[in-house]
Design a protein around this nucleic acid. Structure first.
Lengths: 184, 184
DNA sequence: ACAGTAACTGACCGATCGGACAGCTTTGAC
DNA sequence: GTCAAAGCTGTCCGATCGGTCAGTTACTGT
C-alpha cells in the first residue's frame, strides 16, 4: 500500500485544511486527520515531523501570496495603492478562505497580538490606510481587514458578485469612490 | 480561607476572561485559571459545574446585550434602522471586546457557523443590510459585522476616536452618509 | 462551646493527545 | 531474484487535561 509520495501527502493536507477550518487547530487531533485521509496516525508523522509542520505547510501558500502582495504594493502610493491593496486582499481572502479561517480561529498568538506590536504592525494595514498615520484611517483599515477576512469564509457564497461588492464596500469604508476607476 | 461567595467567583471570572481572550478557550486549562485567580483547581469546580459553565457565565452579559439590541432594532426600518444597528453594534463590540475575542478565537462551532444559526446572528446582518435581501447589501453587512468585531479587540485603542471612526467607516461601507444625522 | 454549613483543598482517576519506535510491506534499480 | 530504500502501521509511552471525592478549614447561628 505504498503510494507515490505526493499522493497521500496531498490528501493529508486536504483533510487537515478542512478539519482545521471546521473545528480549529487544537480541536483537531492527528487521529481525526488520519481517519479522514484514510491512513494511520503514524503515517502522518512519517510525512510530517509533527502537527505544527502540517499547519506550517498548510499556510505556506497564504504566506507566499501575502509576501507577493506586500511587494506589489511597496512602490505604490495614494489612491492606486489603496485600490490595489483592497483588490489584492479581497482576492487573496477569497482564494485562501479556509486558510484564513484557520488563522483566525485558533492562533491567538499569531492573530490576536498582531496589533499589540505597534512597530510590527501589518504592512497591509498601512497600505489599506494609504500609509496614513491618522488613527481614523487606521480604524477604517482595520475594519476592512477584518471584515473582508470574515466575509470570505462566513458569507454563504464566493461568486463574482461577492468579490465585486466586497471591493466596493471596502473602498467606501476607506473613503474612496468605487465608481472612479482612474487615480485621483 | 473562606471568602464571601461573590469574591472568589468574580476573581475566577476575571481571570478566565483574560486568559480565554489571550490564549483561547481550549488552550487555557483549569489550572491556569486557578493559578491566576489564586486558588486551587478544585475550588474552581466548587463554584462552577465545569469549564463550559465558566464560559457560559462569562458570555452571558454579551448575549443579554445582543438580545436587547435585537429588540431595539425590531421596530425600526430604513436608514434609522441601519444607523441604530451600526452604533449599537459598535458600542457592544467595544464594551465586550474581550468576550468577542473569546467568541472569535476558539469556538468554531459557535462563530464559524454564525451563518448557520438563523435565529441568533442573522437578525443583526439583516438590520445592518437594512433588511434588504440584495446579496450586495448582505456582503457589505458581513464586512461591517466582521470588521467591527475584529477592530474592537485588534485595534490598539478603544477611545472615543476609534468608536466615532468605526461608526463612520461602517456607515460609509453600507452606503450611507455619516454626515447626515437625521433620517433619509 | 458546639454543631452545622459553606468554602476550600490535595490527591487521585480515566480519557485523550502528540509523538516515538520497531517492524512489516511494497517499490524499483540492478 | 536480490536487496536496499521508501512507504506505512500497530503499539506503546509520557504528559496533560477535565472532573471526582473524601476530608479539612473557616464562618455563623444558637
Amino acid at each position: 500500500m505504498a503510494r507515490p509520495r505526493a499522493a497521500l501527502r496531498g490528501q493529508i493536507l486536504n483533510s487537515a485544511l478542512r478539519l482545521f477550518a471546521a473545528h480549529g487547530f487544537r480541536a483537531t487531533s492527528l487521529q481525526d486527520i488520519a481517519s479522514d485521509a484514510g491512513c494511520s496516525k503514524a503515517s502522518l508523522l512519517y510525512h510530517f515531523a509533527n502537527k505544527d509542520a502540517i499547519l506550517t505547510e498548510l499556510l505556506a501558500p497564504l504566506r507566499r501570496r501575502g509576501s507577493e502582495l506586500r511587494a506589489e504594493l511597496a512602490p505604490l502610493t495614494g489612491e492606486p495603492l489603496v485600490r490595489a491593496a483592497v483588490t489584492g486582499f479581497v482576492d487573496m481572502a477569497l482564494a485562501f478562505r479556509y486558510e484564513l479561517t484557520v488563522l483566525f480561529h485558533d492562533l491567538p498568538g499569531t492573530t490576536g497580538h498582531l496589533a499589540a506590536d505597534p512597530d510590527h504592525d501589518l504592512p497591509l494595514i498601512a497600505s489599506l490606510a494609504g500609509r496614513s498615520d491618522d488613527p481614523r484611517d487606521r480604524a477604517a483599515a482595520w475594519l476592512v481587514l477584518g471584515g473582508v477576512a470574515i466575509s470570505a469564509y462566513a458569507a454563504p457564497t464566493t461568486d463574482a458578485v461577492l468579490r465585486e461588492e466586497l471591493i466596493r464596500a471596502a473602498l467606501r469604508a476607506l473613503g474612496h469612490d468605487p465608481d472612479r476607476p482612474p487615480s485621483s
